[in-house]
Design a protein around this nucleic acid. Structure first.
Lengths: 248, 248
DNA sequence: ACTGTTTATCGTCAGGGAGACGACTATGAT
DNA sequence: ATCATAGTCGTCTCCCTGACGATAAACAGT
């Protein structure tokens, strides 16, 4: 068909962020409170419009920096991991106009300050299990009500992506500080999967996979008990054979 | 920020299709020849604009029907499989305007007719290896030149998605007719992965996985040799433990 | 009819990895 | 000193996989 600007409908394109971290042995997501309609007062995933001259991933990185002050690193480098998740474009997902949102997934280590940087909107870390399973609870706290728009679905997809990716990649280290112990890494897996893992078998698995962990020489007792060796993430990005997620 | 239509730039949103099939023991992709600039005369992935009231997946299904006459089935049902692949939105990916394309992946069984339905554009099945590795060849046939726009990248991502998904899901059956033999299924894996698999171990694996294959009772000799049992896809969608892709 | 070829299918065996779990070590808390 | 906590090393068994031999059932050609 010939080029005709009237031949296609205009869309708004946004990026939404599923920023996950592990805090106090729980998988948490960054949510912001909406200041205006629709869904005023409800929690939502952070996000914003893609600019005219901006790539999708650049827009996601910009929004991330605006909300958290974090900057994504190169793939698999230590620190924040950013990847495209999926795109959501149901015609009625935003009542104001036709919006297509390219969701991105961010995995970050536990941040000391609640949220650095950020704009005027209030933001917080919300445990994903209270957001994803609120229907099971008897009372329905407005604080725990579903997220705005279709963000519940986006969050669910993001959590499921994280759960499956740590099986066969070394991405779980993205939830850890630059130096971490085997036990801390195990608690990441346990928080993301919501299961208990055998410390001895886990230790054998991760220390026996070449290139996964590199000992730094130091030790720490920050978890109590016997001092544990400190490691940093090795160069390996793929875990083969994968870490097995226990049957439910 | 308050709602202001001038606050966001307008985008065109399209869907592009990576339609894969296995023909003559080779992984092939559906490509169409472009009739107008840019990239006039070059091969490209089929696709088109998302309509104003149309969901993304519905747009992909519509384009698929227009190009091939195929209709996607429910997930994992026998027949055509359709899923969202990724979204591509570099500012300069289309010289005419700002276009964000939501690519979808389609896995189809070998179709008897080259392309049924379809519009005026010429279409064909192209082996993916000649499209993805043309730089290695000494001569550079225009027929084998890279695809238009960023479709080479999209194709690469689609092939990689297919390669990894048949590891841990029963999706390889989407490349097979409703009834198929173990050998035919093995040739699908061999074509998609580009490796040779041991027929005996493959047979043990697929017939020993509960819910993967259901015998229909019939046999066939369409591949020559001893008659083989016919199966159809069982209800299982996940393969656990996964089919192991041989090391390179 | 016999032989070779092709494909399907069953069986055997050795090695690797994972689950289950015992044992020991090195800290801090009481 | 004793206990609780967490880390680390070993062992044993089971299951899965890779490698590969052997048999079965069709067809093609002589």
């Amino acid at each position: 068909m010939p080029y005709d600007p009237s031949a296609f409908p205009p869309f708004a394109v946004t990026v939404d962020l599923v920023v996950l971290t592990v805090r106090k042995d729980a998988l948490c997501v960054l949510v912001v409170r909406r200041g205006e309609p629709p869904y005023q007062g409800r929690w939502a995933l952070p996000g914003g419009f893609v600019r005219d001259d901006e790539d999708l991933e650049a827009a996601a990185a910009r929004e991330l920096a605006e909300e958290t002050g974090l900057r994504p690193h190169a793939p698999e480098g230590p620190g924040v991991h950013l990847e495209q998740l999926a795109t959501y474009g149901a015609p009625d997902r935003d009542p104001r106009m036709r919006v297509v949102s390219v969701a991105h997934l961010v995995l970050a280590p536990d941040l000391p300050a609640p949220i650095a940087g950020g704009d005027a909107r209030s933001a917080r870390w919300a445990p994903t299990d209270t957001l994803l399973g609120p229907v099971d609870a008897n009372g329905w706290d407005a604080e725990q009500a579903p997220l705005a728009f279709d963000h519940d679905r986006i969050l669910l997809d993001g959590v499921e992506r994280a759960r499956s990716k740590i099986e066969y990649s070394s991405l779980a280290t993205a939830f850890c500080p630059p130096e971490f112990t085997v036990g801390e890494l195990r608690r990441v897996y346990e928080a993301v999967w919501g299961v208990a893992l055998d410390p001895r078998n886990f230790h054998r698995k991760v220390t026996g996979t070449p290139g996964f962990l590199v000992p730094t020489g130091g030790t720490t007792t920050r978890q109590g008990g016997r001092p544990a060796q400190l490691f940093r993430a090795g160069g390996a990005t793929l875990l083969n054979p994968p870490m097995l997620r226990p049957e439910i």
